[in-house]
Design a protein around this nucleic acid. Structure first.
Lengths: 242, 242
DNA sequence: CTTTTAAGTGTCTTTTTTACACCAATTCAG
DNA sequence: CTGAATTGGTGTAAAAAAGACACTTAAAAG
């Protein structure tokens, strides 16, 4: 039986047979971060393995031999969370020998950031939930370790690439943007310097509109100018520093 | 037949059988960069596959189900190049469906930097050679693409971590250090600013000795203070910029 | 109309980066 | 022995970026 994308029923059987034949399994695991109520969340699913009953795990599956790594990651996201049009990036692979109880499985971790509001989880998926990153304890497999690695990757990545805007509505206030960065980076930033920095990058476009339904002075709404960002040739800059 | 570390003779047979049974293979490939005569080199081996006769390839092998990813990478380096005590880092995985002609093989790329002088290749290994990175053309498999990705990774990595010192003798002049950075980054750097930057990091230790056998004024020799580097707590610094 | 909350703004200081030029030490060629 | 060639070693000024910091304004809630 090939190591194909398997239904959840027989995955343990497949893995055990694969193990007996001396093969390695390969899977992808998706770490989907979302942002809601000023806190960073991550999308987890109840583990379907007896060994990890009650524990939470990442969205993953074995890779089919007819799909690419990226393809498998997108498929998992669609099959297990109904998510499409999400931008995934590979973080790294994890290959400790006993990381999976049933067999030797090497996994490739993928990471993404989405707007929680854009992906209302169907109530059918009551095994699928957003968890506040700060409050997550033990997880199934080595998934805590994978999630931590992805979180560190994200903190670095978001400082160098405009990932954050996918977590915000199309139009957002600078407060929302700053809350997002503070939640992900885990620090407080100076409001004035934050604004100065973003305005100097010249990638935010004033929409002329204002926040509504806030119990205080409403802020201007901006949108991110992706075209301008694409045009800016990536600054190769050489700042040796360690 | 398990997907174990296989002798070169039957690797194609193993792969074909694995392919027939619907399994994915997993390999590691090592991109070993070295520095010699002011040029960046990479260690390549003649491909052992008929499909790629005469082409150069990275040092790689299938992963055994009883070894970790890192372990496999270190084993490959020892078995195929006789290298030990090398620091390897995982870069990322490559999983295009047809990247290997005999079967579906996903590979995890590892990267390192070594001092070419420390690893004289035995003349027995006349299939193993250092190649100037700038001059490399076509390679076997998707190994050119992997090497390019590792090269980009290296350029970024060396600006944030003191990888470069493993390519230099224990004691080195600032010119040697600068040549190294210029070779890897592919740019010319201002000599005075380069020196200022490195001295301000306070990680170079004056040995009191001087270069010898140079056809010009000899420079002071320094060594890198790894202890001091370890002590410096990693500066988590928040400089949003893209 | 008072309180609360966050929006919006500007300046000064410090740090970092960049640009740039001269004299000194050594080898080599003649 | 001398001059040419080559690289070592140094400092400063200007520009850019980062960091610290306080007050007025707009809206909502009571």
């Amino acid at each position: 039986m090939p190591a194909t994308a398997a239904s959840q029923k027989n995955i343990e059987t497949i893995l055990r047979q694969m193990e007996n034949e001396g093969y390695n399994g390969i899977s992808v695991d998706c770490v989907i971060f979302g942002f809601d109520e000023d806190a960073l969340k991550v999308l987890l699913i109840k583990s379907d393995l007896k060994d990890f009953e009650g524990k939470w795990s990442l969205l993953g599956d074995l890779i089919d031999s007819k799909e690419t790594l990226d393809g498998a990651a997108y498929r998992v996201l669609k099959e297990r969370a109904g998510m499409e049009n999400v931008y995934l990036e590979q973080v790294r692979s994890f290959g400790e020998i006993n990381r999976h109880p049933a067999a030797r499985v090497i996994t490739v971790a993928y990471c993404s950031l989405v707007n929680v509001q854009h992906y209302q989880l169907t109530t059918l998926d009551n095994e699928l939930h957003w968890h506040t990153v700060r409050h997550i304890g033990e997880m199934a497999f080595d998934h805590k370790q994978i999630m931590d690695a992805c979180y560190e990757w994200l903190q670095k990545r978001i400082q160098e690439h405009p990932l954050g805007f996918s977590l915000l509505p199309k139009q957002f206030s600078l407060r929302e943007l700053q809350n997002l960065y503070e939640a992900i980076l885990g620090v407080k930033l100076d409001r004035r310097n934050f604004r100065k920095k973003f305005f100097s990058m010249d990638l935010l476009e004033d929409t002329g509109e204002y926040e509504a339904d806030v119990p205080h002075r409403p802020g201007k709404l901006y949108k991110f100018n992706y075209e301008k960002y694409q045009l800016k040739e990536r600054k190769k800059w050489f700042g040796i520093d360690f």
